[in-house]
Amino acid sequence: MQGTYKTSGCLTAKTEVMTMHDTATAVVPDAVRFDTKVVVVLRDDLLPWQELNATAFLMSGIATSEPGLVGEPYRDSEGNAYLPMLRQPVVVLTGDGGVLAAARERALGRGIPMAAYTRELFSTGHDGANRAAFASADAARLDLVGLAVRGPRNAVDRVVKGARRHH
């Protein structure tokens, strides 16, 4: 699904110089404001392993949805390499089934790309089975347990209206 919004990443970035023990300096971001927002909404009746599983799968959809969303690889002080991660923060919210269904409808109506995870996917074992389970489900009656969206900040806020911060 193709969105019609800007995807430049961030609007402003302030920097400041920090001194550590008066011998080294580093430039670190003070405040970065992204013009897009990433939100995962999880059903509020999931077990902890289900929350983590659904979040991991949903974020894989967001991270691969557009070039440039993932940053550069990480390296520690010894030069060991680590995989790159998403360049912007992710907000995790919760809500009941009605909140997720409404968020799905609003995202569809606004053309906001989304990843969706249904309860049935907890019992499948591979990508083909996941796709088959999803394809056989009635779109209007998806048993959503998780939804991830990325889009303009204000639009995403409207999509996830009614969800609350995850604890």
Results as ranks from 00 to 15, higher is better:
residue 35 D to C: 04
residue 81 A to D: 13
residue 163 A to K: 06
residue 27 V to S: 10
residue 35 D to A: 06
residue 154 N to A: 15
residue 135 A to P: 01
residue 3 G to K: 13
residue 163 A to N: 05
residue 71 G to P: 00
residue 65 S to L: 03
residue 128 G to R: 13
residue 50 Q to S: 11
residue 69 L to H: 05
residue 111 G to M: 10
residue 26 A to T: 13
residue 85 M to C: 14
residue 5 Y to L: 04
residue 76 D to H: 04
residue 144 L to A: 04
residue 80 N to D: 11
residue 37 K to Q: 11
residue 156 V to D: 02
residue 104 R to E: 09
residue 68 G to P: 03
residue 158 R to N: 05
residue 133 A to P: 04
residue 127 D to K: 10
residue 36 T to H: 09
residue 165 R to D: 00
residue 137 A to G: 06
residue 15 T to D: 12
residue 8 S to G: 12
residue 151 G to D: 04
residue 154 N to Y: 09
residue 151 G to Q: 02
residue 28 V to G: 03
residue 26 A to N: 00
residue 38 V to L: 04
residue 167 H to L: 15
residue 154 N to C: 08
residue 102 A to P: 01
residue 98 G to Q: 13
residue 86 L to N: 04
residue 62 I to Y: 01
residue 128 G to C: 02
residue 47 L to F: 11
residue 147 L to K: 02
residue 102 A to G: 07
residue 155 A to M: 11
residue 107 A to S: 09
residue 87 R to M: 07
residue 107 A to Y: 01
residue 84 P to D: 05
residue 117 Y to F: 15
residue 61 G to F: 01
residue 54 A to V: 10
residue 129 A to R: 12
residue 109 G to A: 15
residue 106 R to N: 06
residue 57 F to G: 09
residue 53 N to R: 11
residue 160 V to P: 02
residue 6 K to C: 08
residue 38 V to M: 02
residue 131 R to H: 12
residue 40 V to H: 03
residue 71 G to I: 09
residue 23 T to D: 03
residue 130 N to C: 09
residue 60 S to H: 12
residue 28 V to T: 10
residue 80 N to I: 13
residue 34 F to N: 13
residue 106 R to H: 06
residue 112 I to F: 00
residue 7 T to R: 12
residue 94 T to A: 06
residue 166 H to F: 15
residue 121 L to W: 07
residue 112 I to P: 02
residue 33 R to P: 00
residue 105 E to M: 12
residue 38 V to D: 00
residue 68 G to Q: 09
residue 141 R to Y: 03
residue 64 T to W: 07
residue 54 A to I: 08
residue 64 T to Y: 08
residue 93 L to A: 04
residue 150 R to K: 11
residue 143 D to T: 07
residue 126 H to L: 05
residue 97 G to H: 07
residue 112 I to H: 01
residue 94 T to M: 09
residue 99 V to N: 08
residue 2 Q to E: 15
residue 127 D to M: 12
residue 31 A to Y: 00
residue 142 L to N: 00
residue 67 P to F: 01
residue 157 D to T: 09
residue 157 D to M: 10
residue 7 T to W: 08
residue 160 V to K: 01
residue 50 Q to F: 01
residue 49 W to H: 12
residue 131 R to G: 06
residue 117 Y to R: 03
residue 135 A to K: 12
residue 155 A to L: 14
residue 56 A to M: 06
residue 146 G to N: 06
residue 113 P to R: 12
residue 136 S to A: 15
residue 75 R to M: 12
residue 39 V to N: 00
residue 52 L to I: 13
residue 82 Y to C: 08
residue 129 A to K: 11
residue 134 F to L: 15
residue 47 L to W: 10
residue 95 G to W: 01
residue 150 R to Q: 07
residue 113 P to Y: 03
residue 82 Y to N: 09
residue 158 R to Y: 02
residue 136 S to C: 05
residue 5 Y to D: 13
residue 8 S to A: 11
residue 67 P to S: 08
residue 96 D to L: 05
residue 16 E to T: 14
residue 106 R to F: 07
residue 160 V to M: 02
residue 40 V to E: 00
residue 36 T to L: 13
residue 154 N to W: 10
residue 45 D to A: 07
residue 130 N to L: 03
residue 73 P to M: 01
residue 159 V to R: 08
